[in-house]
Simulated scan of single mutants.
Amino acid sequence: MIKVAMTSVYVDDVTKAHAFYTDVLGFETRTHMDLGGGTLFVTVGAPEGAQQDLQLLLEPGQGPIAEPYRKAVYEAGLPCIVFSVDDIEAEYARLQGLGVHFTRAPQEQGPVIAAVLDDTVGNLIQLAQPKG
């Protein structure tokens, strides 16, 4: 069986992204390696043993491919990734209390209730809770 092992999100600043994704969103650090020359290889994942085989790479978003892509996706208002949550209203309240800026409050969207937040490093992130 083929499974997703890692996916990436292009970010403006890997160090700032790492802090946001761990300290604010609640992910845990899986890998944090200095590759030299100011380049970091950082992955995060769900805490407490959940989805141990799945990591999110915080990928440097500079360069001729990543920058125009990120800018276009952001300006179109499209989330670059979707994270599932068990209780979207509770997460929305918790994250707002931490000063997170949402571009869309929780609302029904097909089979889910979804909200969209700005990750402070160049991306929109969707949170989704299945309805029912």
Score class of each variant (00 low, 15 high):
residue 15 T to C: 04
residue 17 A to N: 12
residue 98 L to Y: 09
residue 96 Q to L: 09
residue 110 G to I: 05
residue 69 Y to V: 14
residue 106 P to Y: 02
residue 114 A to M: 09
residue 65 I to S: 14
residue 60 P to M: 00
residue 73 V to Q: 11
residue 42 V to D: 02
residue 77 G to S: 05
residue 115 A to Q: 04
residue 110 G to N: 05
residue 29 T to D: 08
residue 113 I to M: 08
residue 64 P to I: 07
residue 26 G to L: 08
residue 48 E to Y: 08
residue 72 A to Q: 14
residue 73 V to Y: 01
residue 28 E to G: 13
residue 76 A to Y: 05
residue 46 A to Y: 03
residue 88 I to C: 08
residue 40 L to G: 07
residue 114 A to G: 09
residue 42 V to Y: 01
residue 114 A to P: 01
residue 51 Q to C: 14
residue 108 E to K: 14
residue 23 D to Q: 13
residue 20 F to I: 06
residue 16 K to G: 01
residue 68 P to G: 05
residue 30 R to Q: 07
residue 97 G to V: 08
residue 101 H to F: 10
residue 48 E to M: 10
residue 89 E to T: 14
residue 95 L to T: 07
residue 94 R to E: 05
residue 111 P to H: 00
residue 40 L to A: 11
residue 110 G to Q: 02
residue 45 G to Y: 02
residue 83 F to M: 10
residue 23 D to F: 01
residue 60 P to W: 00
residue 109 Q to G: 06
residue 22 T to H: 08
residue 43 T to R: 02
residue 54 L to H: 00
residue 112 V to L: 07
residue 69 Y to C: 09
residue 79 P to Y: 06
residue 46 A to D: 03
residue 43 T to W: 02
residue 33 M to I: 09
residue 108 E to W: 00
residue 42 V to W: 00
residue 19 A to C: 03
residue 89 E to N: 14
residue 80 C to M: 12
residue 48 E to N: 12
residue 37 G to T: 07
residue 53 D to G: 11
residue 26 G to E: 06
residue 18 H to E: 15
residue 46 A to E: 04
residue 51 Q to F: 14
residue 36 G to Q: 06
residue 104 R to P: 11
residue 93 A to I: 10
residue 113 I to R: 15
residue 72 A to T: 15
residue 32 H to E: 11
residue 37 G to M: 03
residue 16 K to D: 06
residue 118 D to C: 12
residue 35 L to H: 08
residue 87 D to K: 01
residue 20 F to T: 04
residue 24 V to Q: 09
residue 16 K to I: 03
residue 68 P to M: 12
residue 91 E to A: 12
residue 64 P to Q: 10
residue 15 T to P: 12
residue 58 L to R: 11
residue 105 A to P: 03
residue 114 A to K: 04
residue 77 G to N: 05
residue 106 P to R: 01
residue 102 F to W: 10
residue 51 Q to Y: 13
residue 111 P to R: 00
residue 81 I to P: 00
residue 64 P to T: 09
residue 110 G to A: 07
residue 25 L to F: 12
residue 49 G to Q: 04
residue 65 I to W: 07
residue 69 Y to D: 09
residue 75 E to G: 05
residue 87 D to Y: 01
residue 50 A to F: 08
residue 102 F to M: 11
residue 58 L to P: 14
residue 76 A to K: 15
residue 65 I to N: 12
residue 57 L to F: 15
residue 28 E to N: 12
residue 97 G to I: 04
residue 94 R to W: 08
